[in-house]
Design a protein around this nucleic acid. Sequence first.
DNA 1: TAATTAAATGAACGTTTGTTTATTTAACAT
DNA 2: ATGTTAAATAAACAAACGTTCATTTAATTA
Lengths: 201, 201
Amino acid sequence: MARTHGSKGEETAKRIDEVALKLFAKKGYAAVSMREIALEVGVQAGALYNHCPNKQALLTNLLADHMQALLDAWGDMELPKDPAQQLETFVRFHIQYHLKRPDQVFISYMELRNLEPDNFKKIEALRRQYEAIPKNILAAGQMAGQFNLADTHVAAMAILAQLTGVTTWYREQGRLSQQKIEDIYVQLVCQSVGITLSGGH
Amino acid sequence: MARTHGSKGEETAKRIDEVALKLFAKKGYAAVSMREIALEVGVQAGALYNHCPNKQALLTNLLADHMQALLDAWGDMELPKDPAQQLETFVRFHIQYHLKRPDQVFISYMELRNLEPDNFKKIEALRRQYEAIPKNILAAGQMAGQFNLADTHVAAMAILAQLTGVTTWYREQGRLSQQKIEDIYVQLVCQSVGITLSGGH
DNA sequence: TAATTAAATGAACGTTTGTTTATTTAACAT
DNA sequence: ATGTTAAATAAACAAACGTTCATTTAATTA
């Protein structure tokens, strides 16, 4: 026997994922060639196929891993009982998580159409799981009479869109700190659902 | 002399743009080949070059035409004096305009990265012109003391993101009419900027 | 009818694509 | 040291890419 704990191989596999993520985010899946990935990894194109079955699997795994990690991270959060506080928790969580992973976020809704049907279904299911989080919070707040919403489903999609949109203009060296951006969005979102922040934040 | 009013050629040119738009929206610029466009137009690939210099120009023109038409359409609108009413006008305008042209909207912020630098600058400038519209409205409302916003720039970007996001989930056969969707968003947006609708809508 | 020419074809161009393969390299267990 | 094998290379594959070009087609004017 030989090579029980493949030291070199696992590192290459990780670097392939990193490079693919970076290049897919920068230029788009279809515009990135396997040779380009290989070049940046520092390897010949053929060598990629020691670590992944094909280009499509590269994209699928990146998206699936991201969505699953996102769901897991939310699962680890402690949720307050009050829907308004849940909403604030979600807003901060979403912004924090997404601003830390701009590339993953970007490909997760830019490259869905480049997934083959079966892969698309898989990712789409994870996406809907995540969308259910704000939907449930809004529904709870509406039921409790705390929110003032004409339609909780539309509101949930609108809030998700505006939160995710942060990644399109946020710059680390920009005018606003991440903390400040969170605060602004918490106010915006809380106002939009029809509550005002109870003091003490 | 011959062929003064090229009847066949102009129609083909129009069809090329239509097909390119449709395919770029569906599969992405990089994933669509000139042969694929030609096939759908009903012509050989080489014939496309009688009507456009190259693939990049096809994309650039689609984006530039869309952005310019969007700006022109807004320019034709009559604007009320009151910032709150301006905001409602903008919300309805944006939703109406974008839901009528889902493909144009889609490529306008999905395919920006596939533009060569000079073309990108051109489109980006038009985009910023459009972003200035809600920014100015929010700034005016804030100055007048009618809105309650921590940051008008962030709020403008957030509102744009949530409005444009409608195109990702709206279905013509869906649960909600376009009119109803507008109403929901008007309420959401007006609440988010910190005003409540004065009755009579 | 003849001349003109816009607009099409169809083949070819040089590249690049994703992927496969035979072969070499080198790290590990024995 | 030796055998094993993971992981690399380098070359090749057929297919597809954007684009060009000589040629044909057909609509229009004179």
